[in-house]
Design a protein around this nucleic acid. Sequence first.
DNA 1: AGAACGATTGCGGGTTCCCGCATATTGGGT
DNA 2: ACCCAATATGCGGGAACCCGCAATCGTTCT
Lengths: 241, 241
Amino acid sequence: MKVLIVEDDPLHRSYLNEQVRAALPECTAVIEAIDGLEAEQLAREHNTAHVVMDLQMSKRNGIEAARTIWREKPDRRILFWSNYSDEAYVRGVSRIVPNGAAYGYVLKSAADERLKLALRSIFIENQCVIDNEVRGMQQRSVTPNIGLTEAEYEILMDIALGMTDRSIAQRRHLSLRSVQNRLTQIYGKLDIYQVSGPQRDDGTFNLRARAVTEAILRKLLNYGALERAEADLKAWLSEKM
Amino acid sequence: MKVLIVEDDPLHRSYLNEQVRAALPECTAVIEAIDGLEAEQLAREHNTAHVVMDLQMSKRNGIEAARTIWREKPDRRILFWSNYSDEAYVRGVSRIVPNGAAYGYVLKSAADERLKLALRSIFIENQCVIDNEVRGMQQRSVTPNIGLTEAEYEILMDIALGMTDRSIAQRRHLSLRSVQNRLTQIYGKLDIYQVSGPQRDDGTFNLRARAVTEAILRKLLNYGALERAEADLKAWLSEKM
DNA sequence: AGAACGATTGCGGGTTCCCGCATATTGGGT
DNA sequence: ACCCAATATGCGGGAACCCGCAATCGTTCT
């Protein structure tokens, strides 16, 4: 049994290595990658079925890497080990988990015991383990998450990428008006209207731009998510020609 | 001589502690804070003149904390110790350094030796030390930074916050047209026009929103910067009443 | 002083955005 | 089959945005 560790911080990497060896005596080899790109290669070469992965790395973030790793072999087991429980990350992860795959999500702030338990549960028992702080977010997040629909989230990404209503309509196969409807929906859920006290229906804010920052401040969006979305957009643009 | 360490990650914190003790035998006490808020308090209580500070922490980021610490006593010496050399961070730091204060900026990826040297230079010799990777960024960044003016950067923040042209004009004491001029300036420098190949002057992008993401993707903006700018904006809004 | 360059401002108009109102369309539930 | 709620679509208009053109102002250099 081999385990692949993906983590760019050397301190955390050696800590992980230690914890993995302690929790999994049946582990014969620990392979280390320092970014997502290297992870994809090493997973391919060594054909490892067990991966511990950090999110947010320089070259290729954890979600991207996980996506391609799973695309090649959907039965690999991946434990995500991250600093944050931001909605952007959780949504990103749950979007790419293949049907029935075993995976986990534990926070770096968790105690050693929790990490060890998760390692055994996922890699040995083939069970999913998601930290409570994270799972609690699935429904309603800490920052009062006004549960955006998956569809609305999609549109939110699009305006974050700077698309116009028209191109969004085209991309999502909707009418122009529908896009705008969803936008007003989003504006409402994000409280764009009454930022900074009541009586602020004056024109101090550009709704569309404001929605994006609001989303970022509420951690619905982050750098990694934007990066991924941008790549998807580029793909769509070129295939549309 | 006392040293205050501000760092939310326990592994990094203990590493820092170790390095500080090794580099500074004259140091009699090491105090630890786990976020910016606690840092402000402890700096006040212990009246420490020497601080090592991480950027990006949960409760209050390093720049915010440094700002209030320096506001109270501008001759304190702060060494920023960060993962990234993003323009957003560097700009953020250089904006709040009091005139003539000694400070430093070293990356976490730097070797132990570099960290120790920086510690001695700043705390003992009272000299500024800025990592080369970081200083190189001051002029031209890795991602071809088309050097935004300080004024343009300011406007960029404002549209990132979702302000309308009119309110920006009001806030920056400019005419509406000037704001728009600066915007076109920014659009040009950020290459908003020819995203994804040539012949893209069609209306697939909303320039203003696109500029924001482009800035984020290029690391001119990040979460911390937005957070700070948002606070400033709120202050302005309320004082304007 | 005069020339020259840049930044600021005003004007006008073409486009996009935001949304109220009204009309399909869809997908259950009884 | 019927109704109902939610969603999608069309139309129209007021506001905001983007920008070309031209006049003004300020600074610097000769």
